[in-house]
Design a protein around this nucleic acid. Sequence first.
DNA 1: CTCGAAGAATTCGACATCGAAATATTAGCA
DNA 2: TGCTAATATTTCGATGTCGAATTCTTCGAG
Lengths: 168, 168
Amino acid sequence: MATRKPTAPELHRQAVAAYVAAGGEESVQRVITAVASLSKKLDQWYARQLADLDLASGEWAVVAALAKAGEPLTPSQLADLTNVAPSSMTHRLDKLAERGLVERAPDATNRTRVFVALTEDGWQLFSLAIRGSDVVESDVLQDLSEKERGELARLLEVVIARLDDIEA
Amino acid sequence: MATRKPTAPELHRQAVAAYVAAGGEESVQRVITAVASLSKKLDQWYARQLADLDLASGEWAVVAALAKAGEPLTPSQLADLTNVAPSSMTHRLDKLAERGLVERAPDATNRTRVFVALTEDGWQLFSLAIRGSDVVESDVLQDLSEKERGELARLLEVVIARLDDIEA
DNA sequence: CTCGAAGAATTCGACATCGAAATATTAGCA
DNA sequence: TGCTAATATTTCGATGTCGAATTCTTCGAG
């Protein structure tokens, strides 16, 4: 590699510049680009961390979705939450069930539906992964004061509150 | 669906609560979770928008990476930038080249390497997509003042500056 | 009550992606 | 120079994902 590998801030500036040059608005692109590259980097770390647990990132998404919901979900709901086709979920659940991380149970009131729930092992895996990743995440945010973190979270949450209204 | 579909802020709160319950730190999880869900939603919108241009999101990633770099890149670099295995890049580039969006050219000084560049059509497609998506992105940020957008961007950029130092 | 439409999960064939191996070229060193 | 290690791309077999079709159940109009 003749040219040095660019740093994250350099990549960020390049990206914003390119988007602005192509007709995007600067204040918008600075935010959007930063969110995208931050998320991308985090995903990479998670993938590595999950590899240690012998879990594909899509499988983790299922476990996390169930943990967040705190109650059983149907395969369709899981497919929706994890951004995957319902047909793909079937196989994923097969594998996760085989490993004993989730359980399928028929819905007594509606026999077309199936409920998927985390097993005890599933919960333990979730907790283990979270505690591990929290360390990395704290490192990422180490340059922000507690007050700044709160402000950052607040601003992001304002944006999130807008998400549902847009769909159109 | 018996239960109403949860809104984005509800999902966000649930996620933070689950992560904190599993041992994560709150100020960290609020930020990380918000970044993740925002990024996910944006990806969904991009995927839809790109479908109109008959472009898979991975193909877009290649076009965007080349546009941001502003110069030709090798398949390996593109694979790295777009988070994909080098072997997968081969086929993607084949397809993009077939559509006339990129061009491959051998590197005269090192015959192991190949340079990939955007064609004129590739640049036009990039510009078209950016102008289209900027509209959606502006909508997402509409609840933030110009000053708040600047502050949000600044905080995110502080975090990004830290990214490279962590790899360990 | 019956029949057709709608909804949910699964199966199936086609295609994209992955990791490992293969190929070709360059770089380093005795 | 000659030989080995390293680098870059591509090929290949296995696996995951997608969209369409399938099966089964429930809902609703007449």
